[in-house]
Design a protein around this nucleic acid. Structure first.
Lengths: 225, 225
DNA sequence: GAGATTCTGTCACCCAATGACAGATGACCA
DNA sequence: TGGTCATCTGTCATTGGGTGACAGAATCTC
């Protein structure tokens, strides 16, 4: 029986080392182990020396694998840090698809955001949460990582357009509303994330994003006095 | 008397070869000439072979300068294409600062967008416009360029936050409205640009962005039926 | 035309990333 | 248990983007 878990390429499953279905063969376990080692070693080096001043070689030396192996696990250096962002984005889309059709579009998005924030938190409390916060700080300090994160946001926006269009039964090509709501929501989430940047608790970010959403309409309709 | 024009590093002035103030010294004229040659040769090669399949070496060979010189004119390969996007962004902020204080925030942004679109068009009709359209197509087809463009958008957003905050006399740190309006506006402009992507006339893009802005509030307040 | 600036080419070098190939290591079945 | 197949890994060679340092050429200023 072949292990399927990794074939679906879920960043969520890949990043959290302890998934019940993870131990289904020596080969798969080894792969996960070296991947985790690479991530751990890389984050530690990035934290100590900075992202740009850390070479792939240094990371692979710390784990005792070849450079070539690194690029078999990660498309490029940025991809390692991005895996955390991608995992968060995936958690979000998963939650969004679960929202009942009765909810208004905005509420579905807001509630999915809240639910996803809780998904990331459970039990991994120490290790995973610290890693995520570090990733955010690295992104903040590194232009190349910021650009990569914006690309993830771009992909997420396109997914949201599709999901919202299907959810509400409209054509995303002729109807501008899926594009509008996806773009605005991703943009505001990004803005909230930029202000937040890993400091304090995860809830603070969603709270800020909520505030942005609440003040969105007045900002455009009311005079600013 | 020293030429100042290029020291302010205005991408708008840099990109359009024919500015009245441009001819103020042999050295400056030569620099502009090689820069223009590099852009022209690069765009032609990109068009023919694609961005990623064109090496910097090929560009510099076509202009008969050294590779090193290329990187003295452009921070990196992407920067050459981005100069067009940056020029457009600068034209936009210039127009925005010119808008009267009496206009509502949204209207100032919308009118600045319209004005900037006209700024880009005049007289250069053939050469400059074709180049801009080509740059857009390259961005669309090349992930690395898309990422770079998103970074430009990010910078623009931050400028807009500052400009709008100053304009309306609010504190951008405590008041979320500058952040909201800048983020949403840039996001929707980007979305419009993505649908448009250099095909047809420039006006079509601003028209689409206008439509997004018009439907923004209803999208969030009204049910989608 | 002398001297200070600035631009350019050359050279050496670092690092990220990829293709190709061979050997090691699990997976699976008889 | 052993053999076969699939997959993972290391090694090697190579490409291409990007940078620092230095010397020489061109331009500017007086």
């Amino acid at each position: 029986m072949t292990c399927i878990v990794n074939h679906v390429s879920s960043a969520t499953a890949r990043n959290s080392a302890r998934t019940s279905a993870s131990a289904c063969g020596l080969r798969e376990r080894k792969k996960r182990r070296t991947r985790d080692s690479l991530v751990t070693a890389a984050l530690e080096l990035f934290r100590a020396k900075g992202y740009e001043h850390t070479t792939v070689r240094e990371i692979t030396d710390a784990v005792e694998v070849s450079e070539r192996t690194f690029f078999r696990y990660f498309a490029n250096k940025e991809d390692l840090v991005m895996s955390f962002v991608v995992a968060a984005a995936e958690a979000f889309t998963v939650e969004l698809r679960r929202r009942p059709a009765s909810e208004r579009p905005v509420d579905a998005l807001r509630n999915a955001m809240r639910a996803a924030a809780l998904t990331l938190a459970p039990e991994d409390i120490e290790r995973e949460q610290m890693a995520y916060a570090l990733a955010m700080h690295l992104i903040e300090a590194t232009p190349a990582l910021l650009a990569a994160q914006l690309m993830v946001g771009q992909n997420l926006t396109e997914q949201l357009i599709a999901i919202m269009a299907e959810r509400e039964g409209v054509d995303p090509v002729t109807d501008p509303r899926p594009t509008i709501i996806a773009t605005v929501f991703c943009g505001l989430m990004g803005a909230a994330g930029q202000v937040w940047r890993g400091d304090g608790d995860l809830a603070a970010r969603t709270t800020l994003a909520d505030r942005y959403l609440a003040e969105l309409v007045p900002t455009f309709t009311e005079p600013w006095q």
